[in-house]
Each structure stands twice: as C-alpha cells, then as structure tokens.
C-alpha cells in the first residue's frame, strides 16, 4: 500500500505517468480494462505531423514499462474511485488501496452509426478514420469489393461540434488527421482524387498548418468548406453524397468510392461511474473537469489525491497526453510526499 499510486488506464498518458512515478520511487499500478497496454494507439498506423509510425512511440513506452518492473493489471476495469484518492474498486468488487489515483482513462471514439444520414454500418464503403488506419496498417486500402478507390471523400467533425448528438466540443485532432489521411491516400494511389469536407480547419499544432498547405500544393487534396447532408448508394456500388460548398454558396452532389468519417473523441463511458463514486466533476462535454484551466489542469481539486492525465479531461494529441502523464505523476507524488505546491 505504501507509495502505491493507482493509475486508471494503460494508454500513453497512463504509461507515462507510471514511468515518472516509478522514477520518483513510487509504486505505480496500471489498471487497464483491455487485455493489452497502449490504448487507442494500438490501432493507429502513422502519426501526424511527422508520419511517425505509432509503434515507434508505443513500443519504447511498453518496453520501458516492462523494463521498470511496473505492475500492470490487464482486464482490470475500474468501477469506482474513493473520493479521498485512497484507492479504487475494480469490476467484481475487488478493492485496491492506494495513496493517490491518476485517472488516465482516455476517451471513446464517437459511434458513427448515430449519424445515420452517413450510413455507417449500412453502406459498405462508409468507414471511419479509425477503420482507415487499420487499412493503412494492413496495407490494404480498398473498397469492400476489392477495388482501388478512384475518389475518396473525407468528412470532418463527425461527432464533434454537433449539438444534435450532444457532442458540442471540438475533438481538435480530427482536422489534422483528415489532412494526414488524405495525403496518405494520395501517396498510395496518386490517381485517386481526395476531397476533404470541413467546417473549419483548426491547425493548432506545430507543423500542422504547413502540412495543410502541403496537402493542397503538393498532394492536390481538395478541401471544400461544407457538410455532407446525406449519403446514398448508387447503382454501380458507389456512394452519392449531397453537400454544399459554403464558400461559393452552391449545393453539390458528388459520387465517391469511399467515404471516411473523421470520428470525434467522446468522453469515456466509464467517466460517469468514476465521477459518481469519486465525487469528481464532469464538464458540460462529459469529460472530467479539472481544478482549473491553467495551473490545475491535472488536479481534481486543491488538496485532493486524484489527478488527471491525457484525454480524460479533453481531446488531446499524443504529445500532450504524454506531457500530462508526467505532470499528473509529479502532482500525485507531491500529494503523497509533500513539497511545494507550484
């Protein structure tokens, strides 16, 4: 029990927090609901803005966790957290005592079936950005009947900034993901046309704007400001999309072989039970609300022993999640060992 810090979630933020705590002489225990560490990054192929293979980020983390002898419990879903941060309750009722808790429980991908007008789960060639990453990893980006796509449309903000599905927040990383995936398709099939349909292009990170420009100038990706309103099948197995180019104020109808839905980040389903049990606050979006948005964004309160890392509090990219893992670990360490509160 002494020096034990329970870390809920074994994604990049959770692993980074564990590594930092271990280095600080604590006993981190990673509680991961899935059967392997790594979280969503396991399913991703390459990362923006550098085209770095996801494995090149993930594997060193996994190796370090193994090498450091950090205790990892897989298949360990956490159902409750003590309000004082002195332990967690696992599914099945087992209680793990701890001196502090780091909540790095991540996010869920938006269920694209909820936007029925796009036909995900109904039309074969309507896929999500996560499905496309799997295709990239398997080196097989083809239509359901095995054809090389001649035209691909990528739709931004599916399950983000959308009041109708109660996802009012911006998922932040989808814009750059859409640009990255468009360029990857063009790399793979130079003859394939790629269209990005967007609301706004939010290129907030270093190098993002440059890639966005590169996608247009070098990769000839076409970006159209407008939402797709509905998708239907055509007689020859393609998809017909209705949209509007809002910059020129003209409705459009377009056919494509494949439609990629850039699905947003949703608060993890486990947030609610953790919030209720631990007396934690959730923001309007359903992500955890940190103590404040500036100096306390990895803390849940002034003097508590529960801390947040990664996308538990809001959509973030991989780098930001890793940084928060370190920050939350330090906060947890100081809450147990004492020390200056910055």
């Amino acid at each position: 029990m002494e020096n034990t810090i329970a870390i809920i979630g074994g994604g990049v933020a959770g692993m980074q927090a564990a590594l930092t705590l271990k280095e600080l002489g604590m006993r981190p225990v990673i509680l991961e609901r899935e059967e392997r560490l790594g979280g969503k990054l396991n399913t991703w192929d390459r990362l923006f803005p550098t085209w770095t293979p996801a494995r090149e980020v993930l594997d060193p983390l996994l190796e370090a966790v193994r090498g450091a002898g950090i205790e990892v419990r897989l298949g360990a879903a956490v159902e409750g957290v003590s309000p004082d941060g002195r332990g967690v309750t696992l599914a099945g009722g087992e209680r793990l005592a701890a001196e502090a808790v780091v909540v790095a429980s991540g996010f869920d991908l938006f269920d694209a079936r909820l936007k029925e007008e796009y036909g995900y789960g109904i039309y074969d060639n309507v896929i999500t950005s996560a499905d496309l990453e799997t295709m990239f990893r398997e080196k097989r980006v083809l239509t359901a009947d095995g054809r090389v796509p001649r035209r691909v449309a990528i739709l931004h903000c599916v399950g983000s900034r959308d009041e109708k599905v109660k996802q009012n927040h911006c998922s932040r990383v989808c814009c750059i993901t859409g640009v990255k995936q468009a360029m990857e398709i063009r790399e793979l099939y130079p003859e394939c046309e790629v269209f990005n349909f967007y609301m706004d292009m939010r290129m907030f990170g270093p190098g993002y704007e440059e890639i966005y420009r590169q996608s247009q100038e070098e990769y000839k990706v076409v970006h159209i400001r407008g939402r797709i309103s509905e998708v239907s099948p055509t007689l020859d197995g393609r998809l017909q999309m209705k949209t509007e180019d809002t910059l020129i104020g003209r409705p459009m109808k377009m056919e494509a072989d494949m439609l990629v839905l850039l699905v947003g980040m949703c608060p993890a389903r486990s947030n609610r039970s953790l919030a209720v049990s631990g007396n934690l606050s959730l923001g309007d979006s359903g992500f955890f609300a940190a103590a404040d948005a500036f100096r306390g964004n990895t803390r849940c309160g002034e003097n508590g022993r529960i801390f947040f890392a990664g996308t538990a509090t809001a959509p973030k990219n991989v780098g930001e999640s890793l940084n928060e893992g370190t920050a939350a670990a330090w906060q947890a360490y100081r809450s147990v060992k004492g020390g200056a509160s910055w």
Binding site: E116, E117, G119, I122, E230, S232, P233, T234, L235, Q240
Partner: peptide, 26 residues
C-alpha cells in the same frame, strides 16, 4: 427513424417484394 424508415419497407418485405434503395430515396 428518419434516415432508414422501415414502415413501408417492412410491408414490402413481408409481402414478398424487394425494396429499392436508390440515391434520392430520402
């Protein structure tokens, strides 16, 4: 629901027919 209503499609299928899903269905 509104995107894939089944009220008439269900009748067609129950009575032996086949429903046509065409681009301007909605």
């Amino acid at each position: 629901g509104s995107e894939f209503p089944y009220v008439l499609a269900g009748m067609i299928e129950a009575w032996g027919g086949e429903v046509v899903d065409y681009p301007e269905r909605r």
